[in-house]
């Protein structure tokens, strides 16, 4: 409880929350190093196991990556992941664009949509989750139940009514239909995710801040948001990737090729009614993976690194 009290005293100055964890002293580090040596064997076992798992898990990904270097007619039905004829033609073709629209236009559209989705979802989901998890008001449970209820309906049957709404609002051929819902917390998955994490933060935090005279806006901004970093990063990663890969929304709402996102373009290489270029599709799929992979690699460490919750709790 003592540390907690300290934390609360610091809330006004907003210090402790962002303060880095206490550094190891030299002596402690030495101790840890020898402990690590003792754990060496255990570490070896860990790496052997995880590496084996990696091979199994990555095999399909490697197959996919290498297929992008195969001629189109060597891809389907081919067991061997290693190309017999290496070629870069697929990438040249994928990068050359479609119908006068450059690859980078598709790429840029996907990027804009993904980034705005992340912003929208993080803002709206955390705010809504705060209401659901930290404020007591009449109707809360009913709204919460309804929110969970929106998860249950398969989305295919709301495609048409939703299209009619956006069409009548004149929003077809804009990014609005794809983004509005994100800024209005329509994706219950994210709200619920935030609720689960927020409810698990100790109540002492806000109660003490209240005594300090902080209102909900300040508690939300200064206590909740910093402590919610792992779920926020998690949600950002999902929001980015799901938007990046979303296909049906762009298909229905983006009619101008200049507005197309990558998944629409990707599918154009395979046409059952004429000639298909599986190689170019594979190459574009590989290229499309690069940003999401980078996004994940950059942000995954924030899920697990440097959150000061430990300092605040206990």
């Amino acid at each position: 409880m003592t540390e907690n009290t300290i934390a609360v005293e610091h809330v006004g100055a907003q210090h402790l929350i962002t303060e880095p964890p206490v550094r190891d002293t030299g002596a402690a580090a030495t101790l840890r190093r020898s402990a690590r040596r003792r754990k060496g064997l255990k570490g070896l076992g860990f790496h052997a196991f995880v590496l084996a798992l990696t091979v199994v898990i990555l095999y399909p990904a490697v197959w996919m990556f290498l297929s992008a270097f195969k001629p189109s007619s060597d891809i389907i039905g081919e067991v061997n992941p290693i190309p017999t004829d290496w070629t870069l033609d697929n990438f040249t073709k994928a990068l050359s664009g479609i119908g006068g629209v450059s690859f980078w236009t598709f790429f840029g559209n996907s990027l804009i949509l993904a980034v705005l989705s992340v912003i929208g979802i993080v803002l709206s989901a955390t705010v809504s989750a705060y209401a659901f998890s930290r404020i007591e008001f009449p109707g809360r449970n009913i709204w919460f139940g309804l929110m969970i209820g929106t998860l249950l309906l398969p989305f295919h049957v709301v495609i048409i009514p939703q299209y009619i709404i956006f069409n009548n609002l004149g929003m077809v051929n804009t990014f609005w239909p794809l983004l509005l819902g994100k800024f209005l917390a329509s994706e219950a998955f994210f709200v619920f995710l935030m609720v689960q994490f927020m409810r698990n933060l100790p109540r002492e935090l806000d109660e003490a801040a209240r005594i300090d005279g902080a209102g909900h806006v300040r508690i939300f901004r200064s206590i909740m948001l910093p402590l919610m970093r792992p779920p926020i990063i998690t949600a950002s990663i999902f929001a980015f990737i799901w938007s990046w890969n979303d296909f049906l929304g762009p298909l229905l709402y983006l009619k101008k090729p200049d507005l197309y996102s990558l998944p629409i373009a990707l599918r154009l290489y395979v046409d059952q009614t004429s000639v298909s270029d599986y190689g170019a599709q594979m190459a574009m799929a590989v290229l499309a993976l690069v940003p999401v992979l980078l996004f994940f690699i950059v942000f995954q460490r924030y899920i697990v690194d440097g959150v000061a919750t430990q300092g605040l709790k206990g």
């Binding site: 803002l123 705010v127 209401a131 404020i135 309804l146 709301v158 009514p161 800024f183 329509s186 209102g215």
Partner: peptide, 28 residues
């Protein structure tokens, strides 16, 4: 004050629910 704050924080979700979600669900 709590009720006000609650509904203020819930406004985006409520807007989304009534503008985008509820109608299509009832229609289906």
């Amino acid at each position: 004050s709590e009720v006000r704050a609650g509904y203020a924080f819930l406004t985006p979700w409520l807007l989304g629910f009534f503008l985008l979600t509820a109608g299509p669900m009832i229609a289906s």
